[in-house]
Design a protein around this nucleic acid. Structure first.
Lengths: 104, 104
DNA sequence: TCTACATTTCGAAACATGTCGAATTATCGA
DNA sequence: TCGATAATTCGACATGTTTCGAAATGTAGA
């Protein structure tokens, strides 16, 4: 996942899709913000084939969902993915503290 | 930062260093867990020069701190960095929710 | 000062990634 | 069925990354 987010174009795509339905909110999967592939590429000076390649990488990394809706393909983020990433850096969720430090 | 975390060796190093003093705890910078370069490489089948290269990448990305202590060089994570990463995926900290979703 | 240890720098090789354009596939509407 | 639109696949190329070993640097102790 971090590898996929490590490219500036892919990070931008991910950020565009994550501006709604973040962990801690009450957004459900159905509420998740969606963009078509073309919309996601707007403002990025990138060939359509390159955009497609990046979307595929994000999808393979498990970061985004994709589904055809007519002529377009819609992309969104499953809120559970954001929870997971959030939890990775959150002590309560995933890590045990070890060593001599004072956890309260 | 995500690019730096996107390599398996570097992610492992980062995880070893982040097992203490996570955001939400009361660990101070002085309490941060520290390992020498050699200790960080233990168990990884990797040449010393490669390890050094990865550490440099993590340092350049702003993910780890390094300081010479005698013959060895100690590495640790500034808790502020963990807060920052944590905040990136946390709705309260950094993002505004937009669109038609119902935030409570 | 000499030696051992810890780490970094350098250069080179193998491999992976980002990018494009052209060709292809899928869907909708006339 | 045909054409237009949206997106993907493919092949190619330039650029970056990972890795190593050898040589260099920095530090402590005999």
């Amino acid at each position: 996942m971090f590898k996929a987010l490590g490219n500036p174009h892919r990070l931008l795509i991910f950020q565009r899709l994550s501006r709604c339905c973040l962990p801690g909110t009450r957004c459900d999967l159905e509420d998740a913000i969606r963009f078509s592939v073309g919309e996601l590429g707007e403002g990025m000076e990138i060939a359509a084939s390159t955009l497609s390649h990046h979307l595929k990488a994000l999808h393979h990394a498990g970061l985004i969902e994709m589904e055809r809706q007519g002529k377009q393909i819609n992309c969104w983020i499953d809120p559970a993915v954001l929870e997971k990433l959030y939890g990775f850096f959150n002590p309560q969720a995933e890590f045990e503290n070890i060593g001599g430090c004072d956890v309260r």
